[in-house]
Write a protein that binds this DNA or RNA. Structure first.
Lengths: 199, 199
DNA sequence: TACCTTTGCTTAACACTGTTAAATAAATTT
DNA sequence: AAATTTATTTAACAGTGTTAAGCAAAGGTA
């Protein structure tokens, strides 16, 4: 009775096809464009049969998210094993994380919820630049003795912003550490960065 | 001919009503639940009249985004003016930014694209914890001489993650600074944080 | 006052979305 | 060859954003 196996193998295959098709669509048109009917088109079936492989659309996204985390974990493990000094290991791992985010952009978006649609927002909306401007003004003031270029100031701004936006993202999505601890992280990070402006 | 003015005033009023209604719905049910027909219900009209005030749904979101940036700018300006030392000003401004993100959560989500739906992802998906685990392992190793608590290590992890995820978010949404500069920021940030582990 | 035109608003419709139930075609078992 | 099970599709529902057509009330003009 090898036919049962063959059918099971075929079933597993279309399961994979669904995931692959989804990823293809996303790579071509973005997450917003992913629809059940489009997936069905790509695997040459009609939409309802997808529901024999996945409970719903979210289940597909969940499976892809899982795949993404496995990929990321593999990359980071590999990076780690190339070094022996812990400091080097951490750098390598975070660089791997960084690379993953851009080479598997779609996965990263799905995993951490970064939407790309608001590209060049500052260009069509000057208000988006105001917070930037009022902060860089002061950064400029602090760094004045070193005669920094516009890029230098910009870089410092984005470093600040990264830390804080990152922390906020974490706290909006997952609610793990307490508010007090987060405020401590924030304050020390800020003062640390500020001290580094004059150095 | 004051009637023309009255009518114009009424028009402006329902424009505001549309924005207010949208924000109310979002506060109650989240961004995902915002629909033209729901807005219309709330302002006691039918959906098509909204298109006499806004080109489409995105225009409404854009207007709210603008409002959000104005609110944020105001808060940060206020915070700045309460101090004279630049370092203090920066801390106050970023604290204002931080507070804004949580007191105007809906705005912040809209402005910076953080989706909240993936709450407690780690609980239903163990794979999401793997990157966390393999990094904290090494952090633990570095910090061993100081006998850190589990929370200490966790905090360090999230500090790393904030910087990097923040930088990535910036680079996925807006494409402003060059790759080389970003890599420099990343490397210096990482080595700085790593040095601070032993201190 | 009667007519015409403009305005404000609604109903109806189109093309989508995710999802489910019923109908049908194909394959397997009896 | 008939009955049953499995695979797949068609049709439908409720929702989405959006547009066009229709109606009803108000304004201006004769």
């Amino acid at each position: 009775m090898g036919s049962k196996d063959r059918i099971l193998r075929l079933k597993e295959e279309t399961r994979i096809n669904i995931l692959d098709a989804s990823l293809d669509i996303v790579k071509e048109e973005g997450w917003q464009a992913l629809s059940m009917r489009k997936i069905a088109d790509k695997i040459e079936y009609t939409a309802p049969i997808i529901y024999e492989y996945f409970a719903n659309k979210e289940a597909i996204l969940m499976e892809l998210t899982r795949k993404g985390f496995l990929l990321l974990a593999r990359d980071m493990k590999e990076a780690k094993e190339k070094h022996r000094l812990p400091a080097k290991q951490i750098e390598a791992m975070w660089l791997a994380y960084w690379n993953f985010a851009f080479t598997h952009k779609e996965f990263y978006q799905l995993m951490f919820g970064v939407d790309v649609n608001c590209c060049e927002l500052a260009q069509i909306m000057p208000e988006a630049e105001v917070p930037f401007n009022i902060v860089t003004e002061v950064i400029q003031e602090i760094m004045a003795p070193q005669n920094p270029s516009e890029d230098d100031v910009c870089v410092k701004y984005y470093t600040y912003w990264s830390v804080i936006h990152g922390l906020i993202s974490i706290n909006l999505t997952r609610r793990t550490t307490s508010d007090e601890i987060n405020r401590e992280i924030l304050k020390t990070a800020i003062s640390g960065l500020t001290r580094s402006l004059s150095a």
